[in-house]
């Protein structure tokens, strides 16, 4: 009987664990936002986070976007050719990049680059007692470590998404004009005419949401890391997994909110 019930017990235990984790993450998120507008503020830490999360992510975001935009143009042209719809390349590249691929790919690249780095840094600080040291020096770790990183991601990731959207469209444009014989002016005109304000707003809102998720997951798993090198490794890995899954889930939800009507 015990054996028969054990898979059910396992599912039950895993569900309880998942719910408890969700509860802890929700509480952590509420705590972070409650500290966001209450002093003391650490402008130097915020500036460093803006530089690390925003400026230094530009190369990876740019390269991801340009290759994706180019590949998208080739795919749409090749797929569209099956029913004589090659001409829709500018419109679909624009809509694909701005509505979906720009925010999602930037979000995932930020999860890979920023979430992992935040989680590893904070987890190492935890295992080497640097976070305890912060407390003894009358400095709240949430305010000093978490708030600047989350705020920096909230500010910079929408900008990175905007940059990614533009570079992705530029990638598609380059491929279309150089390889697929599109007229440059017409391509740009079609792109501009086709995009709506809602597309751009959704892209930026997704960027803000994904950035916040990426930074929060890095901070949460870093602050809750187990001891030792293995603990740091596990915190880093889990933070990236959680960030990626939550970004994709949030993308689905936000797409529904913006475009289901």
């Amino acid at each position: 009987m015990g054996r028969l019930l054990s898979p059910l017990a396992l599912i039950g235990a895993m569900t309880l664990q998942a719910m408890a984790m969700l509860g802890r993450i929700s509480l952590f998120t509420v705590q972070t936002f409650s500290h966001l507008f209450r002093p003391p503020f650490y402008p130097k830490e915020l500036a460093i986070a803006l530089l690390n999360i925003g400026w230094l992510s530009l190369p990876v975001v740019g390269l991801t976007a340009i290759f994706t935009g180019g590949a998208l143009a080739l795919q749409i042209y090749s797929g569209g050719a099956r029913f004589n719809a090659e001409a829709v390349v500018p419109q679909i590249v624009a809509i694909g990049m701005v509505r979906e691929l720009g925010p999602v790919l930037v979000g995932l690249m930020i999860a890979a680059r920023v979430t992992s780095s935040i989680a590893a840094e904070i987890a190492t600080m935890k295992v080497t007692e640097q976070i305890d040291a912060l407390v003894t020096l009358s400095t709240h770790p949430m305010k000093y470590l978490v708030v600047p990183r989350v705020l920096a991601a909230l500010i910079t990731v929408p900008l990175l998404v905007a940059v990614g959207d533009v570079i992705g469209i530029a990638g598609g444009y380059t491929v279309a004009v150089k390889n697929l014989d599109f007229n440059a002016a017409t391509y740009l005109q079609n792109t501009v005419d086709f995009l709506e304000a809602r597309d751009i707003i959704s892209s930026l809102v997704k960027g803000a949401a994904f950035g916040t998720i990426a930074a929060l997951m890095g901070c949460f798993y870093g602050m809750n890391s187990d001891r030792g090198a293995q603990g740091v490794g596990r915190a880093t890995k889990t933070s990236v997994e959680a960030a990626a899954i939550l970004i994709l889930a949030a993308n689905f939800t936000l797409t529904g909110v913006f475009f289901s009507v």
Partner: peptide, 8 residues
């Protein structure tokens, strides 16, 4: 602190 806990 035992290991110093200096902020690296």
């Amino acid at each position: 602190f035992q290991g110093g806990a200096l902020f690296d």
